[in-house]
Design a protein around this nucleic acid. Sequence first.
DNA 1: CTCACATAAG
Length: 604
Amino acid sequence: MLATACRILATHQRTRPTPLRILPTAEEDASATVCIRSGTGASDGAAPAQEDVRRARSIETPSPCLTADAHVSPWSPPPSDSTGTTTTTRRRRWRLVSYNAAISRCSRAGLYRRALALFHEMRGHGLRADEYTLPPLLNSAALLRSPPAARALHALLLRAGLASHLHVANALVDAYAKLARPAAARAVLDEMPRRDVVTWTSLLTGLARAGDHGAAVRVYHEMAADGVDPDEFAVAAVLSSCAGSTMLDLGRSVHAAAARRGFEPFLSVGNSLVSMYAKTGALRDARTVFDAMPARCTITWTAMIVGHAQNGRGRQSLDIYTDMVRSGCRPDYVTFIGLLFACSHAGLVDAGRAHFRSMVNDYGIAPGPDHYACMVDLLGRAGRLEEAMDMLNRSSTELDATVWKALLGACRVHRNVELAERLAEMVWRLDPTDAVPYVMLSNLYSRARRWGDVARIRALMKSRGISKEPGCSWVGVNGVTHLFHVEDHGHPRAAEIFRKVEEMTERIRAEGYVPDTDWALQDEAPEGREKALAYHSERLAVAFGLLAVPVAAPIRVFKNLRVCGDCHAAIKMVAKVYGREIILRDANCFHHMKDGACSCGDYW
DNA sequence: CTCACATAAG
């Protein structure tokens, strides 16, 4: 504990941040004030917290219970002893509890600045934080996205000797996890004398948030080794990471264990199961779980809508949405992202426009950049670039890079180089380190055979120190993940795999496959380009799948980037020639390939 | 009066 303590204190000493003075925003003050029931005057020094307690409380539970249970509430005057006098220490105790309650209410109501300001005020009255004060404060600091505030509270709790309280330490782990500082969360956890399921779950979600789903899954196993049993929270969290790391087999085993422990009826567990199965391409299992759920919520329905859309079942997504509304469940902001995404992937332009309007008119949801990005994607794919631009021009929402990137994607379909160049400039201005515009531009130039421009973009990327995520594909066999890069000879069975790729190429050529060298990005001679295509990572993974996956089972291949068009055509044909079902999930959606056809309808 | 979960395109 000491090492971390010294470091934190030293940092705090050196930088002397004053983050605890973060004041409530005007809106927070307004929303708090609106809720005050009567025109009681400002609280005096004797009962400083009462007004804030009342505010915070009334925010969450607007009216009647406030007066109804006032006589039993902890902020009523402290009970007097037999002689009718109240000791100073008892009064201080009541004021501390009142402040704690107020801080907790504010934190829960989303008034994070207010919570921190109350703490500041409380200290002004000579009251010290205890083990009840700190967790909601840490939570507020984390949700305000303020690492300095979190570090200051960390320093404070060390000085106050509160670090050994399990709840306080858990809140600290969670705060670092929420702030996407998994290493700091881990350091705190490692120094704790004992950990419970909350500690581990906090770290696990922190890793998941940072995108390290493999590490999250390892933490789940570590928890078991530490002698801590998972509960429904931990199960829901780890299932999400199983989905994130495409570990379907592990997801199934967690499902089985959760069922044995009786966690299946929990809404969050059902929701994460539906999502996990859908995201790993096992739609049938997602449906089975969904049908068996005792209750469903917006998240459940949204997971189903998105899952079907990702698996190329956009029309079914719309049917599910109809059922959702019919069941009385209200769609939210995220539901509409999924719904518009479904329309976009199924090419349902009219339905997409209608749902966009319905979102605003029927549900009063203001469209965000996310919705605009989906609409741009939808209109762009359908060749309505002009309409997409019109829509953006008319919008009053502040648009961000996601929208410009969606438009860039539309340019990819329509090969509109000039517009793409302008958009790339806009994205660069917002985030110079984003590799997406470079890759998009390079692909566009490449398809236009403008090799000079391709080289220029590559040089630009290099000079700016930006690297594109290398493409890779993997396939799971008997619980082991086999990973491949382009022209990768690193696998123990590489020779066999490359022979299989050559066999694949020969057999599909016999069926009429012609390589589409436009997809090759290097400005090489045609033969070289063809060769590079033939050994893309997805083809190596498929070849290995043909060798290692039992004939009756589908071959499930995952790719971190979007599948290349030539590989898409080739693998479709491989599925037909070899009589196999191949499920290829790329960065964008699933491709269920069978009998020479793909669930995406060649539209992705 | 305190801590952990599930849905999101590119």
